[in-house]
Write a protein that binds this DNA or RNA. Sequence first.
RNA 1: CGGGGUGUGGCGCAGUCCGGUUAGCGCACCUGGUUUGGGACCAGGGGGUCGCAGGUUCGAAUCCUGCCACCCCGACCA
Length: 490
Amino acid sequence: MAKGITSREQNYSQWYNDIVLKAGLADHSAVRGCMVIKPYGFAIWEKIQRQLDDMFKATGHQNAYFPLFIPKSFFSKEASHVKGFAKECAVVTHYRLKNDPSGNGIIVDEDAKLEEELIVRPTSETIIWNTYKDWIQSYRDLPILINQWANVVRWEMRTRLFLRTAEFLWQEGHTAHATKEEAIEETIKMVNVYATFAEKWMGIPVLIGTKSENERFAGAIETYCIEALMQDGKALQAGTSHFLGQNFAKAFDVKFQSKEGKLEHVWATSWGVSTRLMGALIMAHSDDKGLVLPPKLAPTQVVFVPIYKSDEELAKISEKVNELKSKLEEKGISTHFDNRDTVKPGFKFAEYELKGYPVRIAIGPKDLEKGTAEIARRDTLTKEFVDQNKVVDYVVNLLDEMQEAIFAKALKFREDNTHKADTYDEFKNILNEKAGFVLAHWDGTPETEEKIKEETQATIRCIPLDNNEEGKCIHSGKPSKQRVVFARAY
RNA sequence: CGGGGUGUGGCGCAGUCCGGUUAGCGCACCUGGUUUGGGACCAGGGGGUCGCAGGUUCGAAUCCUGCCACCCCGACCA
């Protein structure tokens, strides 16, 4: 085990924290519930951003930016929306500070009270729909396909690095359409973009489905989601895409004139993923030695570690490393040559394992003699000596292979931890002994879901799209149209 | 917000119960040397208003009061 990392078996939560802190991804900050994302963590987030942004652009979206602050009155316009977010909003009430007359530093200037309080956005539907009202007159103005990269604030009771912080970074797509069908199509298109990203880039298999009424986004008609399974058997909602119907158009009076000349309310969607994806990435693949990153999201894919005794030896090794390094970079592979002489190779090996660099290439005197290089892969922790002439091809293939292997491993884990339950006893046994996803019949009522949650802490993670096996609800015995996915969740 | 825990050089801790010279230890850091194929070794050195604010006392890391932050387990949530 690596120095200072708690093992998963010992304490999974502590293991997660250790990885985040020791791999240099993020730190706690001086502000309750808020984190500092450190350069290495931010570099991974940037890789996530870049790929998603490309995918959004490829599906016809444009980026824009709306204000951080939202007038309080906007929130009350959509009833279920305000109900869902009211309990976790940060509110700006004043706009000025002044010196404390009694000499104790600085205080809020009570004379500078705002006429109308401003809410720090927990999500931007309201400010955006208030704006869309000005942008939309005719069916010719539709669709509007906009995404925003932003920070939002939700005043959570209990926070955890990346998984739930009071302030987090995310993207939120907000689209406006002339027809219901087109909006639903958009909603499903984007949840599929998320699923593709999760599986192909993050190496995390996800279930796609809809949310039950209890779990649905505040203000949505239907919420589609991707659900991932973490190594401790708990589920993590990794992305959501909402069909908002005409709720926000009605709340903000956004109408358009159709081809037929009729005035109609606009149809809406919104969809988002957040820095929570970082949490998913960490928990899905990492081990007791540290972070394991899929090559496509690793800020640096290949690190070279020289092993030498003399300066002359280092010079010879450097020559070889630099040659291989530039050949790899020509192939679009990101590399780093760690020629620090202040720490020993063993220290470097451990450090790069902790940080999850996918491939490590060590070259020493023996390799110079034999024309080889020692190539170690992070996911399996295996090493192989490879002929120097073959290193470039080997690494190109290896990175692809690792991307696949990391996904395959996570997929196998999910399959091994997905079970069917036909009785409530069976259901409870699985949750207590194996955790994971449990596929079970449910009568479709919020009351039953609520009871199951109270009794087992498990919630419906999603209602899969392609499943129509009928049966009887494990809790109420009433008829069920299909199995749904239960799990304990983050 | 309820239960439990923690706060002492950058990190991890001891000391606190029972107040008393100059607050220790390991890692990290700096200098010099020897080392380098899995977290090096020796020697020398630098760094701390003991979370914050009050109070008790001749004297407070230690006792009292209040506050703050963080962690773990719940309730809430992306």
